[in-house]
Design a protein around this nucleic acid. Structure first.
Lengths: 300, 300
DNA sequence: CGAATAGTGTCTGTGAGACATTATCGT
DNA sequence: ACGATAATGTCTCACAGACACTATTCG
């Protein structure tokens, strides 16, 4: 044993005497982007109601961004895993329990929050509206589902201009953002910079929450193509037409009926129930074959 | 104006008087998983050298996990964006500058670090070894490239057993972990739990770094299929055989030559240079067409 | 010349896209 | 009967997989 080793402390001793340096640390929060599906009003009984995508927002009752709408979330406790925090917050603000929350991204810019340094890890879930029951949390004056749409306005080589439209008819709120995505090449990857501008609505969303919503829409559009998350938006039993509507909504393009059915057919099973409350031939209800949740599905 | 509104403070006043509550906060670090490609020794001039994937690890010179190998990284400063921190650390430990670092995941379990609560956001980059020059940072006694391989041992319905093998011949180190992935269904998503066991080597990697490496290998395998990141591992000019080797290595399966060439052909352009230092017909060097970096490529 | 890779040609089956047709419901 | 969707059928074209063959280099 040489001199150096004699002078060394063991890991046990080191940890016993360890005092964290007294430097400042960021606060850590979690955000949950909850998406759900809803039927648009349709009086004509001969037509299938259109589906719309909705996102859960809360109205902040405290400063900063008082009275602005925001993505629900909260602080992570020092003795709490991040995962546990997000499931706790989810349970506090809705009654949801058995949902899969997927970690999306961690937002760590210095000036995200005007109060202090706050780093936020965002999670996303797709839920069936019938299963949940939203209640406002501590920091929320109100909670409401907003329809969310992303419209592509213009695409160039390295620039994409789009709009994010958030709307709640009951509250009479419409918020429209214009998002300019500038694509840079860094090495062999693309790296986008976003410019965000509020173009309609009295006030925008709190913090950098538009950016987070935009990111989660993109992630969802990708995931929908090779997983079965789209099914989370529908009840256990659904018609193939409803399922197709969901895919069209999430992908942002129309699909040819028979081709969609051919693609989806190995994943679903027909039940002996039918849905028949409208002025056309009733359609069979289908369920998802469980094995397809585990294995990645073929690209649509 | 009602009584409530009279009593309200403005956001400006609120922020001026805001004192952060004195609760404990986690420390925040970044980890960088750097992958590169290397030729395996091949004396037979008639054969093309095999490619191996390598990952950069540093040897910790302080407690905890003193003398264990670890993923390079460091603390995020309170006045520093997370992104800036990871690029700063990258520059400090290597001389890399113009690489794209992709955020992977944020690890937030309470007991990740025996000293205190540390939350870590990990980033990944694929680099060409020729462009970089690794130097050990402050907390690192040493830095070295380890070959990394993931072998599937057994796959069942909801359980996958694999091994992660890390090796450095110069340092005479071989570390093997067995990873058992238990797949659960949560809603319409899969949710994996991992059991990790060191089965070869004097000591394992520091902290939860095997878990992070495992995650990044999976992410890379996915990304390789619809982006051009594989090209980051090669020099600007490469042969189609080298490129195929990279794809085979990252995907973990062999590809048929002509099919691979047909698939890759729209993405690359032949230069008028050739590579000819071995005992067989020289091969043309190719370059990637820049437009394919931006647009997503077709699935392989 | 031999042993290896470079590079091209081509057959085949699968499956996506598109279009067409019949069946069935409520009004 | 009408207007809508349900459900099935089928033609075509693109392309992935597989295999075969020739060309070229260095030792």
């Amino acid at each position: 044993m040489n001199l150096k080793e004699i002078n060394e402390v063991t890991e046990e001793e080191f940890l016993k005497n360890y005092k964290p340096y007294d430097y400042e640390r960021p606060s850590l929060t979690v955000d949950m982007i909850l998406f759900t599906l809803d039927d648009e009003e349709e009086k004509d009984l001969k037509k299938v109601p259109e589906k719309v995508l909705k996102v859960l927002l809360i109205k902040r009752k405290n400063h900063p961004f008082k009275n602005c709408w925001a993505i629900p979330g909260g602080f992570v406790d020092i003795n709490e895993n991040i995962e546990d925090a997000v499931y706790r917050e989810l349970k506090e603000e809705t009654n949801i329990d058995n949902v899969y929350l997927e970690q999306l991204y961690t937002w760590g810019d210095v000036n995200r929050d005007p109060r202090m340094r706050v780093v936020s890890t965002s999670y996303m879930a797709l839920v069936n509206k019938e299963n949940i029951n939203v209640k406002a949390g501590d920091d929320a004056a109100d909670a409401a589902w907003f329809t969310i749409k992303k419209k592509i306005i213009k695409t160039e080589d390295t620039k994409i201009i789009s709009q994010i439209i958030l709307e709640n008819v009951a509250e009479d709120i419409k918020i429209v953002y214009e998002i300019t995505e500038n694509i840079e090449i860094k090495g062999y990857n693309k790296n986008s910079k976003f410019e965000i501008k509020l173009i309609e609505g009295d006030r925008g969303l709190a913090f950098d929450h538009v950016k987070i919503l935009n990111y989660s829409l993109e992630r969802m559009r990708n995931k929908v193509q090779y997983t079965t998350i789209a099914f989370s938006l529908l009840p256990k039993e659904f018609t193939l037409m409803e399922l197709q509507q969901v895919y069209e909504l999430l992908l942002g393009r129309t699909l040819v009926k028979q081709n969609f059915r051919r693609w989806i057919s190995p994943m679903v099973s027909k039940t002996d129930k039918v849905k028949s409350n409208r002025a056309y031939r009733p359609s069979s209800l289908y369920i998802l074959n469980k094995s397809y949740i585990i294995n990645e599905i073929k690209n649509i």
